[in-house]
């Protein structure tokens, strides 16, 4: 179980959020979308040119650019559950 940022999460991998680094308005927006400590977030796909990436969070899919995903701290969890 490594602590990494969300931008490192590969498609098919699951994780739990451990913290937010984002500042300003986007911080609250991420929180309102469910990106808060303890939430599960999975990587579900990368766009054809490699950025942005789509994540499953609180029952929906949200795409983030890697700059923004790297502001979210996560802990990877085992995929086989």
């Amino acid at each position: 179980m490594k602590r990494i940022t969300l931008s490192k999460l590969k498609p098919g991998m699951k994780s739990v959020i451990t913290g937010l680094l984002a500042k300003g308005g986007i911080r609250r927006r991420l929180q309102d979308l469910g990106f808060v400590e303890g939430s599960h977030v999975d990587c579900v796909g990368i766009s054809p040119l490699g950025n942005p990436t789509a994540y499953r969070i609180s029952g929906t899919v949200i795409a983030l650019r890697s700059e923004d995903a790297s502001q979210i701290l996560i802990q990877e969890v085992d995929t086989d559950v």
Partner: peptide
């Protein structure tokens, strides 16, 4: 600079 953005894929 580009601002942060979130895009929902319904």
């Amino acid at each position: 600079i580009p601002s942060s953005f979130t895009l929902e894929l319904p």
